[in-house]
Design a protein around this nucleic acid. Structure first.
Lengths: 149, 149
DNA sequence: CCTTGACCCTGTACCTACTACGGAGTTTAC
DNA sequence: GTAAACTCCGTAGTAGGTACAGGGTCAAGG
């Protein structure tokens, strides 16, 4: 019934050393030990580790997972809070998708330009090197194009 | 002409302490110093910092940027290698977009289910808890969903 | 019984890319 | 002249782990 850490790792999807790490940071309780000091895990322990593993697969932070575990343990279930955590995380994931998509578009752009104009100088390096002809979102230096220094 | 670190930070887009960090890890050379030991930067230094800042905005790792800087410094320009670094990074960014998109879809799914069936138990927690289609050796899954008060 | 190899233990260091101090010295503005 | 703003260095912290080193333990084979 009770198993060693390597078996718990295989069943839960958490790496062996990650399990010890989770224990160290208090995300899972310290398990029972054998006389020799070996950790032994029961099914409830493995369930908890699986919960964490799935949470990580969905991109939740360990802090978010900590909250979700507390909510999961609580008998008077508070679905609203779970919902809030999940929606907050979804928003964050979507934000990261947008950010990375912008990066990918920009990369695609400079790479494809480079393929066309390779002889005149690398446009990829040019995009990194260029001074001021920037139309990127957000930043504006107060430098008038009509009156250069 | 030469400026202090705070000005170099403002012009380059790198945080002041980040500049010192880049110096410490050897990404930028140690700048000249005043008699009192203050760092002073010239335009070439600021250009290099800007290069790094733009690289980071495109998501390149500092190691990749290190390579790109070397290629940029090299007079016999090797556009192929630059291209390889950029394409490799683009592939990685696209991989991350896909991964995050999968996460977002899954989150969307469990969140919307939860909104519909909130009374039967939280489906978000259920998705994390479920002992499922994976290799579950001979465990019975039948747990009657008892109605909450 | 003894050895061999596969486990397991603790503790620490390392990774990325920064950021945030603490405590001191320096420059600048009024 | 003095107070505020700036700079210095070094260290430690962040997330989420991974990777040893240097030991102890357990099962099987000979």
């Amino acid at each position: 019934m009770r198993m060693k850490i390597s078996e718990a790792a295989a069943l839960s999807g958490c790496h062996l050393e990650t399990i010890r790490y989770y224990e160290r940071i208090g995300l899972v309780p310290a398990p029972l030990r054998t006389g020799a000091g070996y950790r032994t895990y029961g099914t409830a322990d493995v369930d908890r580790l699986q919960f964490i593993s799935r949470g990580r697969e969905m991109g939740f932070s360990l802090d978010e997972i900590r909250s979700l575990l507390r909510l999961n343990d609580d008998p008077n279930l508070s679905c609203n809070e779970v919902d809030a955590v999940a929606r907050g995380h979804l928003a964050e994931v979507q934000r990261r998708v947008e950010e990375l998509t912008r990066m990918a578009d920009e990369l695609q752009r400079v790479i494809s330009q480079c393929a066309g104009t390779a002889r005149g100088g690398c446009t990829i390096l040019g995009a990194l090197r260029r001074r001021d002809d920037r139309v990127a979102p957000g930043k504006e230096e107060g430098r008038a194009p009509s009156a250069p220094p």
